[in-house]
Amino acid sequence: MENKLMIKLIVGTEAMFFLALIMAFVYFSFTPDFKSHQLLNLDLKTTGLFSLLLFSSSFTYWRAESNYQKGQIAWLKFWLVLTIILGCVFLFGQGREYSSLLDSHVNVSSSTFGTSFFTLTGFHGLHVFAGIIVIGIVTGLTFSGDYTNKKSSVIAAVGIYWHFVDIVWAVVFLIVYVLPHIS
């Protein structure tokens, strides 16, 4: 139970952190002439595809949690590994986008857009990476025989964090990628 309380406290502080980053991004990026701004150069379709994979990882983690509660350890392992793969593919997509932007001379020091974009999406990517590491540790422990009973709250606590990371990306994706194309 204390695992869940601690992760909820962490998620609460991280939510405030991301709220500040999102507000900074909006302030620095949505200028009166943002239609011609670098926002419209972002690849909505490709990032949308990688986003769907990240959102799918919330489903796969939920399946892992569900199978853990049922005592189906083989399926727990399968869903955990699939969650890690989906998270890694998302990070690969983010790396591709960063490479493309850097090739177009958009970087942290090129403009306030670049600074706020790379800060917001970079910190989110860092959170995805941290989540992958934690899920990897849980997966390794699962393969070594831990978590064979349904009493541990670790898997549920990690799930709270992983679902939070996906929710944050849903908000970021909506504001950074979708909103500029509908206004």
Rank of each mutant, 00 (worst) to 15 (best):
M1D: 06
N3Q: 14
L5C: 03
M6N: 10
V11K: 04
T13G: 07
T13S: 15
E14P: 01
M16A: 14
L19S: 15
I22G: 04
I22W: 02
I22V: 15
M23H: 03
F25D: 02
Y27W: 15
F28S: 07
F30K: 05
F30Y: 15
T31C: 04
F34G: 04
H37L: 13
L39D: 03
L42S: 08
L44E: 10
K45Q: 12
T47I: 07
L49H: 06
L52I: 14
L52D: 05
L53P: 00
L54F: 02
F55C: 02
F55R: 01
T60F: 06
T60K: 03
Y61H: 08
Y61Q: 02
R63D: 00
A64Y: 01
E65C: 01
E65W: 00
Q69L: 06
W75F: 10
W79I: 08
L80Q: 13
V81E: 05
V81N: 03
I84P: 00
C88E: 04
F90C: 10
L91W: 09
F92R: 09
E97Y: 04
S100A: 15
L101H: 11
L102F: 15
S104K: 15
H105W: 09
H105V: 09
H105S: 15
V106D: 09
N107V: 07
T112E: 11
T115Y: 10
S116C: 02
F117A: 02
T119G: 08
L120G: 05
G125F: 11
G125T: 11
L126E: 08
H127P: 10
F129V: 03
F129D: 03
A130D: 04
I135L: 13
I135F: 03
G136P: 04
L141V: 01
F143K: 01
F143W: 07
T148F: 03
T148A: 05
S153V: 04
V154D: 10
A156V: 10
V158W: 01
I160Q: 01
F164H: 12
F164R: 12
V165F: 02
D166Y: 05
V171G: 06
V176G: 03
V178F: 12
L179V: 15
P180M: 12
S183K: 09
